[in-house]
Design a binder for these strands. Structure first.
Length: 292
DNA sequence: AATGTTTTCAACCGCACAGGA
DNA sequence: ATCCTGTGCGGTTGAAAACAT
C-alpha cells in the first residue's frame, strides 16, 4: 500500500522508505534530535527532502507510535473530539497517545465516515427519502451532518496528553533533554526492541563518503555562508525551488548555549548561532575549524 | 485460478503561520 | 513593515492488499 520508490529531478528519493533509510533516520534523530528538518537528511545520510523525513518520523518511526486497529474507546474518543474540534486532526491526535494525525484522519475517512454514510443511506431507504446528490457531495454533506448531530455532546476533558520524546544520547556534545515519566518507560522499551543500540557510539552508523556530509562540501558551505551567498538548493520542503538558506547554517545545536523547547510533542533542540562548529559533531572530529 | 473492484493507509502536496532578519 | 525560512497541518493521491465475482 505504499508508493514505489522513485527519484525526482533533484535526486531526492520519493515513495516507500527502505529499512536502511528508516534505520539511518531513526538513529540520527535518536541521537541528535531534529534540530533542522531541511538540513537533517544530509547529516542523517538519507536522500530525502526534510519534509519527507519529518513525516516518516512523526507518523512511523517516532517511539511510541501505535500501530494496528483502533479500540472502541479510541474510536469513541475520536468521534467525540471530532464533534468538538472538526477536522483538527492534530488536536485530536494530541488526545490519543501514540496515534498520529494522519492515522486518525485516515481512520475517520475510511471507517467512521463510510459507516455513517451507509447507515445514512439505509435510513433514507427506510424513511422513503431519496437523494440525487452525487456520492462525493453526499460525502461532504454527511460530514457536516454528523458534525452537527453530535455537536452538543459534552465530553470530559481527556487528560491523555501525548507523551513527549526524550533525546537519548551519551554523546557529551549533546545536551540530554529529559522528560518525566512515563516517557522513559516507553522509550526504554522501544530502544530495547531496536536492532541498533543507539546509546552505543560504536554501533551508530559511521560517516561514509557516499551518504554523509563530506569534508569538501563542508568547506564549500562555510565559505559561501561566510560570503553571504546561497549554496544550498532546494530550501523548500519539496526541494523544488532555489531559495537560499537562512541563518544558523553554522550554528552549533549541541553547544553549551543549546536550549530546548517542545513542538508537536517531541523535544526540539534549537540551534544557536555559534561560529566555529558545524551542525554535526562528527564533522568537528575530522578537522579544526580554526584552521579554515 | 483469474480477473475486476474496493479498501486501506503511507506518502505527497500546497498552503498557512510563526518567528527571525 | 516586509521578506524569508522552517515547520506543521489538512486534503489528496495512488499503489498494494483485501475482497468479490
Amino acid at each position: 500500500m505504499v508508493r514505489p520508490p522513485s527519484v525526482d529531478s533533484n535526486g531526492m528519493k520519493k515513495g516507500a522508505w527502505s529499512e536502511e533509510e528508516d534505520n539511518k533516520l531513526r538513529a540520527y534523530i535518536q541521537r541528535y534530535g531534529h534540530w533542522n528538518w531541511r538540513l537533517l537528511p544530509k547529516y542523517a545520510g538519507v536522500s530525502r527532502c526534510g519534509k519527507s523525513c519529518r513525516l516518516r518520523w512523526v507518523n512511523y518511526l517516532r517511539p511510541g507510535v501505535k500501530r494496528g486497529n483502533f479500540s472502541k474507546q479510541e474510536e469513541d474518543l475520536i468521534v467525540q473530539l471530532h464533534a468538538q474540534l472538526g477536522n483538527k486532526w492534530s488536536a485530536i491526535a494530541a488526545k490519543l497517545p501514540g496515534r498520529t494525525d494522519n492515522e486518525i484522519k485516515n481512520f475517520w475517512h475510511t471507517r467512521i465516515e463510510k459507516r455513517r454514510y451507509k447507515q445514512n443511506q439505509e435510513s433514507k431507504k427506510i424513511t422513503g427519502h431519496t437523494n440525487e446528490a452525487s456520492s462525493s457531495k453526499d460525502h461532504q454533506m454527511l460530514e457536516k451532518e454528523t458534525h452537527s448531530e453530535i455537536e452538543t455532546t459534552q465530553i470530559e476533558s481527556a487528560s491523555l496528553d501525548r507523551p513527549t520524546l526524550s533525546v537519548v544520547t551519551n554523546n557529551p556534545l549533546v545536551l540530554p533533554v529529559t522528560e518525566p515519566n512515563p516517557v522513559d518507560s516507553w522509550l526504554d522499551s522501544f530502544l530495547a526492541d531496536t536492532p541498533y543500540n543507539y546509546q552505543n557510539d560504536d554501533i551508530f552508523p559511521p560517516l561514509s563518503e557516499d551518504n554523509n556530509f563530506l569534508y569538501s562540501e563542508a568547506l564549500q558551505y562555510r565559505e559561501l555562508s561566510n560570503s553571504g551567498s546561497s549554496y544550498l538548493s532546494g530550501s523548500d520542503w519539496t526541494g523544488d525551488d532555489n531559495q537560499s538558506p537562512q541563518g544558523n547554517l553554522w550554528g552549533n545545536p549541541f553547544g553549551s548555549n543549546t536550549s530546548s523547547s517542545h513542538q508537536s510533542g517531541s523535544s526540539y533542540i534549537q540551534p544557536q548561532d555559534q561560529v566555529g562548529a558545524s551542525c554535526d559533531p562528527f564533522i568537528d572530529q575530522y578537522f579544526d575549524w580554526n584552521e579554515l
